[in-house]
Design a binder for these strands. Structure first.
Lengths: 185, 185, 185, 185
DNA sequence: AATGAATGAGCTTTCATTCAT
DNA sequence: AATGAATGAAAGCTCATTCAT
């Protein structure tokens, strides 16, 4: 069960570096150290390779986030745990995190709707803090996007070299900023 | 000079919908109602078409933001004006805004560094509020990314149908959230 | 309107010589004196090229047969005209005739059912001579196939070099044989 | 030695249904319930698998035809026996018969010339009835093709659903038609 | 300025075949 | 004997780009 993983790892790295469309099957095969035909023994095609990477890691990361959130006692602790876990994940595997980020646009929408997503877990925790459907004077879904943006945008900034890594040390400060921004109590 | 504009408008729409790499020159020409060869009468190639769209609108939007910011008196008013102007721009032309957002990855890096960017204006205003290089306990560039994320992520959310349009009515609430998040004074 | 015809002619020749599956798009393009990509400007794909050749010539040849049959006065004259016209067509363009023959198996079944076929015209003329659904003691459709085989098999034989060309001089003798075989009156 | 037979049976069925070139080794292996590599333990390659099927069954069927023909006393009885035996063979194994029919084009020509073919036996019997090289006013080889076509075309028609099976009950009527067509005595 | 047929490099994909187990 | 992962040559096809009209 190694070749398939090799292919997925190589694909994640190349996709993160150059984008999905610009990465060729030839490059993926070469990076994985196998021949091009081997890709098609493990995946129905390039699209399905992308989909499998996304849905697999999407679900795994969502479960990871859900785990740390469930173990935390208070709202504040849940928020803190989520942010920290996001940045741990980013620091652990920036390529994968990058792919998840840049795929929010096109290929992500092919993922089966029942798949749990990291963003979904995050939003659920924030929305649960809503009082009368409003958070900090904003509709709950809007507020949830704001919270999401506060976590993800620094990650994007670090890809562009505008923010220093690792991100994890800043997790608590970010959680605090979200807490204040959304006037949670 | 209508054909060139038709091409740029068509390209913006298609790029926003499907990504730059996945959009073909054939599709652009068809959407603009001209033949494929006509593209090359107005642009040196697909890349240059992308670059021209980005740098042109990037600079224009940056100038627009800079204008409203310069006219505002206080820090708070500057922030409020920037957020509002962002959402006005989004509501006015979601396709263009989307393109600017999703292009932050590959083609954006071909833009000449001296070109002013919307994100740059935004960051400058926030960083200017820094005291001792720290904002709300975070390094200034990190805080600037957070502020940016608070504005942009709701826009992304609205593309996915998770947030209702128009966004402009929420501008003041978002500015307030940023103010609290970054503990600006 | 020449390139498309060139491609179809080249394809007919190569298909007849080596079979449809064994003929590559590269070969077709080379034989037509154009580049490979040009095929796809005129046809959606190799399959559609095959289909268009078949249905176009199928319909044209069927119309040709129907014309000579309609102009003939008696049953005997109709039969004679059909056989002669078949062999004239074979002698005129053995490649095309060959393609029609060898395509009776797989690709022919993709042709729209409403398309008139040469075999259909032939069978109709024979079946019209049936008395009580029987011809020469055989069910009419069975007899029609026999008549068809008497015309086509010598053509196949000539492809294998077992029968001398041209075939047209034998047309009347073959018509006579069919007449006797099916005990038509 | 069952695996080899399984492979040949599966291949015959698939070849008849979709043609030799369009049938992949993967499909053959799957239909035979073995792995792809196993094919190469029994055959040197796909071509040799085809060749072995064809020459084996070709020779066997030719011998079968020759047997019934030799046992028949008169010309008429020989013809009758041949036709009946052809249709018995078709009814017994339409896939194999179909393969023999449609393979008359490419792979058949790789069969060693000394191998006796069913068509050859058939033609020999008819040609032996020639008087002065002519049969029914036609060159003997031409007449032989006509006789062949009268037997084979109904088989093709039955593959297309235009003629009802089984064919054997019509054998005597077909033999009679050939007798009349070729004015044999 | 505009066309659209043509190009050809390069893409994704297929498939007969090999080989370590 | 059998497997099935791996191969690599070659297939069908795409697409940014060119050019005669």
């Amino acid at each position: 069960m190694s070749t398939k993983d090799d292919l997925m790892r190589a694909a994640i790295r190349l996709f993160a570096a150059g984008g999905v469309a610009a990465t060729t099957t030839r490059e993926i095969a070469a990076a994985a150290g196998v021949s091009e035909g081997t890709i098609y023994r493990h995946f129905a095609g390039k699209d399905q390779l992308v989909d499998e990477i996304l849905s697999q890691h999407c679900a795994a990361f969502a479960a990871e986030l859900d785990g740390v959130q469930a173990q935390a006692a208070s709202k504040w602790e849940k928020l803190r745990a989520l942010v920290r876990q996001c940045y741990i994940a980013f620091d652990r595997d920036p390529d994968l995190f990058t792919l998840l980020l840049i795929s929010r646009h096109a290929p992500m929408q092919r993922i089966p709707v029942e798949t749990r997503t990291p963003a979904g877990v995050f939003q659920a925790v924030i929305v649960r803090g809503a009082e009368g459907g409003k958070i900090g004077g904003l509709p709950a879904p809007f507020a949830a996007q704001i919270g999401l943006g506060m976590v993800l945008q620094p990650a994007i900034g670090s890809l562009h070299g505008e923010v220093e890594r690792p991100l994890a040390p800043q997790a608590d400060a970010v959680a605090g900023a979200i807490w204040r921004a959304l006037s949670l109590v």
